[in-house]
Computed example of a mutant assay.
Amino acid sequence: MSGQRADAAGLRLLVVGASSGIGHAVATSAAGRGATVAVAARRLELLSSLAEEVGGSAFELDIEDTAAITSVVGAAVQALGGLDAVVFTSTVAPLAHIEDTDVATWVHAFSVNALGANNVLRAVRPHLSEDGVVLIASSHDVGRPRAGVAAYNASKAALDEILHSWRNEHPDLSLVRVGICPTEGTEILRGADRDLLAQLFESWVEHGQLPARMAALDDVANTLLSLVLTAHENPSVVPEFVQLSPRIKKVPAAN
């Protein structure tokens, strides 16, 4: 990408959740900065196009299928010739008031957002190079939930606790947790009920839960990649808990 240093040369990177949004942008940025990239997600048609664009490998993966995770990670490691970094961005954010959130919705959110990340960690850990890094995308909103996204927020809170346990039991692992702020150009609410979304939007605005401006997609992706590179190049430290927030610039007063 223009303006980016080619400082990822030689990095062997797997991006899980790369068919769109932040994962897609991370893969594109990493390849543009010299990394060798493998991408995994459910939508193989989109992944194949991305892999062709970045000169990498694409793997179809349903993150709720534990056996498939193990298989895909093994195939990705073989295609990459090793594994230096993993970025996990797979996320679902079902919209429903909490009293309307059924069991299937709760299970789906936890399966993808919490257990999916955990199972990817389990699968990739044996393959990581000595200074390997795993970055997991969490949520900026953990601990301050908005209306209508109870399953999403609860599953991301559970994810944070899972990552605390990983750090406790495996302090040698370079594990970076990033709270993602509201970001333009993602598909996190793909398929949402538009009428419900409009109602919730009013609630979020009323309670001051929406920023005046969201973060730019490429800026978020480049920040995630920079965190991976920093951890990889400085292996005695881990930027273990990072929160991203939109930077709201003041508009110059008119003359």
Rank of each mutant, 00 (worst) to 15 (best):
A9R: 15
V107W: 01
I22S: 07
L121T: 03
S165R: 09
A76G: 11
A6M: 14
S174M: 10
E233T: 14
V120E: 02
L13M: 14
T89L: 04
V133P: 10
A192M: 01
P145L: 09
R33V: 11
D62E: 14
V92C: 06
G82R: 13
E60A: 15
A27V: 06
D102I: 04
A67T: 13
L95K: 01
V178N: 11
R125G: 00
L196R: 05
L159C: 03
E60Y: 00
A150Q: 05
D219F: 01
V142N: 07
V220F: 05
I136V: 15
G3M: 14
L80D: 06
W166A: 08
E130L: 01
V176E: 05
D219S: 15
L14A: 13
W204M: 11
R247F: 12
E184H: 10
V176T: 08
S49Y: 00
P252Q: 06
N113R: 12
A93W: 01
A31T: 09
V251G: 00
W204R: 09
T28D: 11
P252F: 07
T70F: 03
G74L: 06
D218A: 15
A158T: 14
L115I: 12
V120K: 03
T91A: 15
L210S: 09
A150D: 01
E240T: 06
G56P: 09
Q78D: 15
V54S: 04
D84K: 05
V72Y: 03
T89K: 03
H108I: 00
G208F: 10
V176K: 03
A58M: 06
S236N: 09
L14K: 12
N118M: 07
D100Y: 02
L83C: 05
A150T: 12
V237F: 13
I162P: 01
I162W: 02
V73Y: 08
G10Q: 07
D84L: 08
G148W: 03
P235M: 09
A79W: 02
F201Y: 12
R42D: 03
G148R: 07
N119V: 00
H97A: 09
L197E: 07
V220G: 07
R146G: 06
H140Q: 15
P211H: 08
I188V: 15
V237R: 14
C181E: 00
S165F: 02
N118S: 06
S48W: 00
E60F: 00
A41W: 03
V16K: 04
S20G: 01
E233Q: 11
A93V: 03
V220W: 07
G23Y: 03
T183F: 09
D65Y: 07
S236E: 14
A231P: 02
A216Y: 01
D131A: 14
A51R: 12
S155I: 05
L61R: 10
D218W: 04
S139D: 11
G74P: 10
D219R: 06
W166E: 10
G17V: 09
L196Q: 10
S90M: 02
S90Q: 14
H97K: 13
E233N: 15
T223P: 01
D100F: 04
L227T: 05
E187L: 06
L83Q: 08
G56M: 05
V237H: 10
R167D: 08
L189H: 13
A147K: 13
K249S: 13
V103M: 08
N168G: 09
E53T: 13
G82T: 13
L83Y: 08
S129A: 15
L13T: 08
G179H: 12
G21P: 08
A154Y: 02
T28P: 00
D218R: 14
K250L: 10
A67P: 00
V37A: 04
H24C: 04
